[in-house]
Amino acid sequence: MVTFLFTLLILIPIAIAIDISEKIDNFLEHTDLGLYQIIDEYYKNFIIYYANTFMPLALFIAVILFTSKLSSNTEIIAITNARVSFTRFLYPYFVGATLVTIISLGMNHFVVPNSSKERKKFEREYIKNNRQKHELKYVREFSLQLTDSTYIFIRSFDTEANAGYDFTSEVYDGIEMKSKLVSDRISFSEKDSTFTLSNWKLRKIFKDRDSIFSGSKIDTAFNFTPRDLIYKSALAQEMPSGELQEFIGVSKKRGVKNLNAYLVEFYKRTSLPIASYILTIIAVALAFRKRRGGTGVNLAIGIGLMFMYVFLMKIAEVLGAVAGVNSLLYVWLPNIVFGCVAIYLYLNARK
């Protein structure tokens, strides 16, 4: 565990140094941005996010370093000569992996989302360019199913001003339209969670006649908020798992077609910590035998496998966010592939 903490403390400063080199120009553009604010609002949360992300990988490297040290000192030979099986030899490693997994799961599901919310807010204000800010601010040509019978359509909506244009709400009974409400402008009040419609017109359809009502302004309530209009994967990182799961459930009922970006984020919070067990088995099996070249060879092989895992994980996340695919399978694909590698190495090491 000491080696694990040491490895983690090496990886984080490297990530910070790379990030500073990329964003130093953005920081200098804002004269009102102080060092304390950068550390408190951005890098504090940056460390929380990447420390949690690096945990399984730091554990992987730590196990290789520690086991290679045992092997180079011929301590493993003494252990095996005492008829200690390879499975029994793995027990202490799994205790350490369990500790890391529990901490990582807790951080992934509860701590990191709240931390990411503050970090993303800082990025939107000081780092994102105008085009990226515009994408998060404006929603165009949006439709949403509120209930089994109610649908809404909005041509454009400003999520910062909480106002939009060309709003339509339609209520159906089966395939027959019962009413249609349109307005030139719609605005949302966070104070009382109501919408104000300007230049509105309501048409109610009956069997033998239609009734039309209109006015300049009316206050009403709908079962959605402006936040529901923004379907971006970045927002998923800001939701604790309970809120994210509820959001996915509500969105499915509303008929949102592609929620895979949110599902990928939700599944990833469990799959990455569980990878600690798989990477631990691989690391012990690689470093269990004494090699010519010692720790350096084991470490080189381990780092190569680590980058292969990260590369496969990123590809799986991108493919899992595509509409119509099984996002659960794609998120767990790196664990499945490396799990097979771990089983092979484990069976081979037992011999």
Score class of each variant (00 low, 15 high):
Ala300His: 12
Glu317Asp: 11
Ala300Lys: 12
Ser271Asp: 05
Thr270Ala: 12
Val297Glu: 10
Ala300Ile: 15
Ile303Glu: 04
Thr280Ser: 12
Phe307Gly: 09
Ala275Tyr: 02
Ala275Lys: 08
Ala275Ile: 04
Leu319Ile: 14
Ile301Ala: 14
Leu272Arg: 10
Glu317Val: 03
Met313Val: 14
Gly293Pro: 13
Val284Pro: 01
Tyr330Ala: 11
Met306Pro: 05
Gly302Pro: 06
Asn326Tyr: 04
Leu329Cys: 03
Val325Glu: 02
Gly320Arg: 00
Ile278Phe: 03
Val310Ile: 14
Lys314Met: 14
Tyr330Phe: 14
Leu286Trp: 04
Asn326Trp: 05
Ala300Phe: 15
Ile278Leu: 09
Ala323Tyr: 01
Leu279Met: 13
Thr270Glu: 04
Ala287Met: 03
Gly304Met: 05
Val322Asn: 03
Leu328Phe: 14
Thr295Cys: 13
Val325Lys: 01
Leu312Val: 10
Phe288Lys: 09
Arg289Glu: 14
Ser271Gly: 04
Pro273Arg: 07
Ala321Thr: 01
Asn298Trp: 11
Ser271Tyr: 04
Pro273Gly: 06
Tyr277Met: 04
Met313Gly: 14
Tyr330His: 09
Ser276Thr: 09
Gly302Lys: 09
Thr295Gly: 10
Tyr309Lys: 08
Tyr277Glu: 02
Leu328Arg: 02
Leu319Cys: 09
Ile303Gln: 07
Ile303Phe: 13
Gly324Lys: 00
Lys290Pro: 04
Ala321Phe: 00
Asn326Leu: 03
Tyr309Glu: 05
Arg291Trp: 12
Tyr277Gly: 05
Val297Leu: 15
Ala275Phe: 01
Ile303Gly: 09
Asn326Ser: 07
Ala321Gly: 02
Ser327Ala: 13
Val331Pro: 00
Lys314Ser: 14
Asn326Val: 00
Leu286His: 07
Gly302Cys: 07
Met306Trp: 02
Gly320Ile: 00
Phe311Leu: 12
Leu299Gln: 03
Ala283Gly: 05
Lys290Gly: 08
Ala275His: 07
Ala285His: 07
Tyr309Met: 08
Arg289Lys: 15
Ser271Ala: 11
Gly320Phe: 01
Leu279Phe: 12
Leu299Tyr: 11
Phe288Gln: 08
Pro273Thr: 09
Lys314Gly: 15
Leu328Glu: 09
Val297Asn: 12
Val325Thr: 12
Val325Arg: 03
Phe288Ser: 11
Gly294Arg: 03
Thr280His: 10
Ala323Lys: 03
Met313Lys: 11
Ala300Trp: 10
Gly302Asn: 04
Ser276Ile: 02
Ile301Gly: 11
Ala323Gly: 10
Val297Lys: 15
Leu319Glu: 08
Met313Trp: 15
Met313Glu: 12
Tyr309Trp: 06
Gly296Lys: 11
Phe311Lys: 13
Val318Glu: 15
Val310Pro: 07
Leu305Gln: 05
Phe307Gln: 11
Val331Trp: 02
Arg291Val: 14
Arg292Trp: 10
Ser276Glu: 03
Ala321His: 00
Val325Ser: 02
Phe307Leu: 14
Phe311Ile: 13
Gly324Pro: 00
Ala275Met: 07
Ser271Met: 03
Ile281Gln: 01
Ile301Met: 13
Thr270Phe: 14
Ala300Gln: 11
Val284Thr: 07
Phe288Ile: 13
Ile315Arg: 04
